[in-house]
């Protein structure tokens, strides 16, 4: 019996454990749930306020749609540039990869800028219930964006250092996955807060 075992052909080479990708997927899922939970609290509070015949936003406050739309459109564009970066690393096209990652980081910073501009236009006090919730939801998402940007930047430097190339691009794929989830969270916020208000 033991001889039969020794005569077996060698086992196929197992796939490299994708620890970073799996860990990132779990963290991204958790971050998405935090945003969804916050949006749920926002919707619940707004529904309760409207059900009692009141108004949601305080008098004089408004949420202008244009900066919100611009931020979301930029976020979608950053998704394309991130996909481009992962694809370029997959093809060992380092120059395109650097360009795409730099563009993604630029788009992310532009979203932060657009959101801060939106804050200046809302004229909304933090002490009101809508103020608490809107700043908490969008602030949490900004934190997620910053985390995603730092993650993408680290992976960019690692790519520059030659750690990721060709088929082995786990770190960059993980950063991209987190970024896509950040975009999905932005979509939820855009619809629930900026569009529906």
């Amino acid at each position: 019996m033991a001889d039969a075992a020794l005569a077996l052909p060698p086992a196929p080479q197992p796939a490299r454990p994708r620890v970073l990708l799996v860990g990132t997927a779990l963290v991204a899922a958790g971050a998405f749930m935090a945003i969804v939970g916050l949006v749920g609290v926002y919707i619940s509070a707004r529904t309760n306020a409207l059900a009692t015949g009141g108004t949601w936003l305080p008098a004089g406050s408004s949420i202008p749609l244009t900066p919100g739309n611009m931020a979301f459109a930029t976020m979608l564009l950053s998704g394309v540039s991130m996909w481009w970066a992962v694809d370029a690393v997959g093809k060992n096209d380092r120059q395109m990869a650097y360009l795409a990652l730099a563009l993604t980081i630029f788009f992310g910073i532009a979203v932060i800028n657009a959101t801060s501009f939106l804050y200046s236009q809302m004229d909304l006090a933090v002490s009101s219930t809508p103020g608490v919730l809107i700043f908490a939801v969008t602030g949490a998402h900004l934190a997620m964006i910053i985390l995603g940007l730092v993650y993408a930047a680290v992976m960019t430097f690692r790519t520059l250092g030659g750690e990721y190339h060709g088929r082995d691009r786990e770190g960059l794929t993980a950063a991209a996955l987190f970024w896509y989830v950040t975009i999905a969270a932005h979509a939820v916020i855009w619809l629930a807060i900026y569009v529906t208000k």
Binding site: G37, L38, V41, F135
Partner: peptide, 25 residues
């Protein structure tokens, strides 16, 4: 836990912001 406790974290963020600014909610 990863799918549920972040909702608690979000809620705590709201509570913190609310409590720091008068506790209206």
């Amino acid at each position: 836990w990863i799918l549920t406790l972040p909702v608690l974290v979000g809620l705590l963020v709201v509570m913190y912001v609310d409590h720091r600014h008068g506790g209206s909610s």
